[in-house]
Computed example of a mutant assay.
Amino acid sequence: MASGTYAWLTVDQGVWVRTRAIVATSLVLAVIASIGVYLVVRDVGDNLRLPIAGRSCTVRADGQVRLNAEQMAHAATIAAIGIQRNMPERAVVVALATAFQESGLENLAGGDRDSIGLFQQRPSQGWGTPEQIRDPRYAANKFYAGLKKVRGWQEMRVTDAAQAVQRSAFPEAYQKWADESEVLTRALLGDATAAVACTVGRTPVIRGDAAAAALTQSLTLDWGLPGATSLAGLTGLSVPAADPRDGWRYAHWLVSHAHDHGVKRVRFADLEWTADKGTWSRVSDRKAHDARVVAEVFAEA
């Protein structure tokens, strides 16, 4: 049956439906839905977070952030260098937000023009040699030194403080990383308990005495600690903690560097992280480790 250019169908209840009207309506709804998805993606943009496969770390400290092993290690080093320089907590937030935006917390070999490293610093602008800038400790130190010269940076928004150092073409871009950076800072500065948990598996890049030596050296360089000692009967190190906050600073740093330094186990107070589980759990013999952080590395294969 036809009526003009439209075809008509009968449904069970005897209701007549124009098929072209249905098709047209469906197309309109599809277009509206597509526009809605576009607007959500446009507005949310970089705040969308997809699960990270492989070796990953989850940080929970009044919020949650997920990073891969390389990003986590760099974040921990940036935070430690800030504390070693006696910079306030706010400075660590600004530094992490800057590294998030500039490099995604990855130590990049290149970038825009001659930009290099975590903070995309440029040799041509006096930040240092390419080799120096690729050193995360050097890069973090240079950033903090630049931030310290900015008058009133403590009262600025994160993005304004970062921009005063970086002179980016996108001065507002740093602000979107403020929340993630605050979560990381709370954890890495010891203001949360068992807040950094990394899944690194049983295939470390380094093992045995070499791992213990590298771990001790890195801990000393990042924190300026002279007090790390070897463990009797275990391959690893022990770090004295003046108080719980110090203890969790070192414990979280050790877990953050577990993959690149072959860390098998980290223990502080009555909690222990293991590479096998990738999580923290309670242990019974608390008295043996109350005032120190203990880290064991994987033995030689």
Rank of each mutant, 00 (worst) to 15 (best):
R202W: 00
V239H: 01
T193L: 10
D209H: 06
D246H: 12
A195F: 03
L231D: 06
L215M: 10
Q175A: 14
G190P: 01
A197K: 07
A241R: 05
G224A: 04
V196S: 04
A187H: 04
A195L: 03
S218W: 01
G201M: 06
A242K: 14
R207S: 08
G227R: 14
A169K: 12
T235V: 15
K176M: 13
A213L: 09
A228P: 07
R202H: 07
D179K: 13
R207N: 07
A210M: 02
Y250I: 11
L237T: 05
Y174A: 07
L221M: 11
A169W: 12
A187S: 05
S230V: 15
A187E: 02
D179I: 06
T203K: 14
T185M: 07
V196A: 08
R207L: 01
A211K: 05
L237P: 04
A211I: 11
L225N: 10
G236C: 09
P204I: 02
A211Y: 02
H252S: 10
A212L: 04
W223M: 08
A214C: 00
A211T: 11
L254T: 09
P171H: 08
P226W: 04
A242E: 14
W248R: 11
Q175F: 06
G247S: 09
C198R: 02
P244K: 07
A212M: 02
L237D: 02
T185D: 03
